[in-house]
Structure formats: C-alpha cells, structure tokens
Amino acid sequence: MPGVVRLSIDSDLNQVEFIARAVRSLCDNLLGREDAEAVELAVVEAMNNIIKHGYRGRRGEAVDVNVTLTRSEVEVEVVDHATPIPERIVKGGEPLAFDFDATDVAGLPEGGMGLTLIRMSMDEVDYVSRPGENRLRMVKRIAAS
C-alpha cells in the first residue's frame, strides 16, 4: 500500500485549491474526516505562505508537493525555491496557541497565523532550508483503529 504521489503547481494562489483537493482525496480513505481536514488546512497554509511571502506573489515558479502514504502516516513535503522562512520565525519559539485580547477589536490579528495553524494541525513539522531549496515536511499519524 505505501506509495508516493508527486504534485506540482505554479506559484499562483488560484492553483492552491487543486493541491488542497488532491491531498484531501488522498487522505480521505486513510484519515478520519477531522484529520483529513487538518492536513488540508496545513497544506493550504504552507502553500499560501510560500506564494505570498517566499515568492512575494510572483507567478511562474514551481511549488512541489510530495505526498507519501504508509500504513501508519501521511507525510506531506512541500518544496520551493523561494526566499526561506526567516530563522527567527522558524526557531523563534512561536507560541503553539493563539493568545490575544478578544475584547480589543482593533488589535485582533488578521495575519501571521499560518505557521501556528500548521503546527497545531500536524503531528510533526520540520523545515530544512538549503541554498536555493526549502523543504517543509509535515506528518499526520494514522490513528490505530
């Protein structure tokens, strides 16, 4: 049953939905609905970050997604050749929960939620940046039935 599916889109926000739907259907028979939705959210947030911040909205660049399915987990690796996520954000002890004053409407966050959502949605997340290539690896374990 283990298998690898390789997907690739252009760095265009309009194409992120195609990857989301493809990854979602790959997960549907392996993960429960909530876990499959969590993987979809993490993948979308990762791709949005790459396109918006890494490529700064520039189209015509590749974003590759490798989905590895095993009996015990779904691994999604997102590969880009954009500006990496700044190290202070990757390592910077970003909180694993959202903490803000719900009564202060003007101060509510409107962005910067992606990486925290990815960490909350997946069981393992790691990010490796080499010159010219960044790899974000995200794992969701399959709950024993």
Binding site: A20, E40, L41, V44, E45, N48, V105, A106, L108, P109, E110, G111, M113, G114, L117
Partner: peptide, 19 residues
C-alpha cells in the same frame, strides 16, 4: 466548507471596519 487564515483575516478586518 473551507476557510484558511487569509479568509479568516478578511472576516476579522470586516469586524474592525464596523468598529
């Protein structure tokens, strides 16, 4: 059936506009 953090941010900015 799907909202990401950008969509949520847009909803938040509506609330801010209403004030």
């Amino acid at each position: 059936d799907f909202v990401d953090s950008s969509g949520l941010g847009a909803i938040v900015s509506c609330l801010k506009r209403i004030g």
